[in-house]
Design a protein around this nucleic acid. Structure first.
Lengths: 263, 263
DNA sequence: ACCTCTCGTT
DNA sequence: AACGAGAGGT
């Protein structure tokens, strides 16, 4: 028996909007720790890891670990039927092949329940080691989103270069080139406007903008985004989910063309 | 000679937006009583009945009964040219094959007149008897609209079930099922938020969501909608037009599948 | 915070 | 033409 009651239901709605265009089917894993998901995108290039800790739920009952395979498009369709102020409860009976989403309007006048079929999905759950990163950039998520969107109208890839003064996003395409530099800025009126760079050593890596633009769909979840970079490691683009956990996107850097030739 | 002056011209604009995707051509009937329309939708499944009483007009002159056939898309095109604050006057000369819409801006600085060709439309005018209904639900029009829209992302039909505690909207589709229950609620801060159920006996009927979603285009006309249900009778979905009359939509229930087989 | 309106997109 | 996203207003 599973029963997870989330007062701020809009969080779950946003989580699904954030990952549904990257991942079509995935297993949600429930344990005492929380409600989590790990999945590769459909082209097996990027990885999404979601964690919503049990303490973030008003009520969290999970009698035994459960892995529920869901079609994220169908799940998103149902969650779109919840109001932004609704309380969302996720329910599943042991051994059942369905999951129920219950939506309660703030004044309790409207109660909706949506039942969805589960599916069998085989997925290897990767252990993701905690790594040290050469550079960690924290910046406003809206700004990062705007930059990726803007650059993708010029080129297909973005080179992210971090020095301790700032972070530079560069691209090149048929019509020209573009560079956007964001300076570190800690002394800002509102903390959510800050751009903070923690750098061990300069780093410069190249990524496909297509995936970056998918990642930024998570922007509504958090005012800030954290970008963790190291040579040889996938970049981690992380959005906090208020008081509950995070969504992390992993993407391997593009190898420089000359190195690509060597291999 | 016909001359109808409507101070709150936006009402007529909204009326047209409400019915133009259901009905393409229709006769507007003018008499001493008022300005009215009755038409089947293009697939002859739903019926629209509009009444704007003569008392609702600032000036109402209708020398003799007149039936004016109009293309509602063209009429809507013209009315869209009126500002929301404009006073609209509808004029027609006896025997003329055109109608004129005159728009006066609130400060009288702008006066526009649009002349539109009338068309011959043969329509049988049905007498619609006043019936007793097993259940009448009054609820916020925006909520009804949202429910129909949400359910149509899951299934094609809605089952509306009324008990004295509340009204339930249900659907089923490939990806799952959905039930939305609205409780009766008379004791609400604002009367337009109330949900009121007058029930003689429980009733449960099935309707095509496609039409319901067309009906809800009339939501801008009124904060509340009235849904009148009886077995064997078409549902009536009614929106009041402020101080003037109403738009009513009629739709026959779907017959249960097993009964359909018999026939 | 919610809703409306406008704009851009499919 | 209809829908969805974004911005601005209440």
């Amino acid at each position: 028996m599973l029963e997870l009651r989330l007062v701020q239901g809009s969080l779950l709605k946003k989580v699904l909007e954030a990952i549904r265009d990257l991942v079509t089917d995935a297993n949600f894993d429930c344990s005492g720790t929380g409600f989590s998901l790990q999945a590769m995108d459909s082209s097996h290039v990027a990885l999404v890891a979601l964690l919503l800790r049990s303490e973030g739920f008003e009520h969290y009952r999970c009698d035994r670990n459960l892995s529920m395979g869901m079609n994220l498009n169908n799940m998103a369709k149902m969650l779109r039927c919840a109001g932004n102020e609704d309380i969302i409860t996720i329910k599943a009976d042991d051994g059942s092949d369905t999951v129920t989403f219950m939506f309660e309007s703030p004044n309790q006048d409207k109660i909706a329940d949506f039942e969805m079929k589960l599916m069998d999905i085989d997925s290897e759950h990767l252990g993701i080691p905690d790594s040290e990163y050469q550079a960690i950039v924290r910046m406003p998520s809206a700004e990062f989103s705007r930059i990726c969107k803007d650059l993708s109208s010029i080129g297909d890839t973005v080179i992210i270069s971090v020095t301790k003064e700032g972070v530079k996003f560069s691209t090149a395409g048929d019509i020209g080139t573009a560079n956007i530099v964001c300076r570190q800025n800690k002394t800002v009126d509102k903390p959510e406007d800050a751009t903070i760079i923690e750098m061990q050593e300069p780093v410069s890596l190249t990524f496909a903008l297509r995936y970056m633009n998918s990642f930024t769909k998570a922007s509504p979840l958090s005012d800030q985004v954290t970008i963790s970079l190291s040579s040889e490691l996938p970049v981690v683009v992380e959005y906090k989910v208020a008081e509950m956990g995070y969504i992390r996107f992993y993407l391997a850097p593009k190898i420089e063309e000359d190195e690509e030739m060597k291999s």
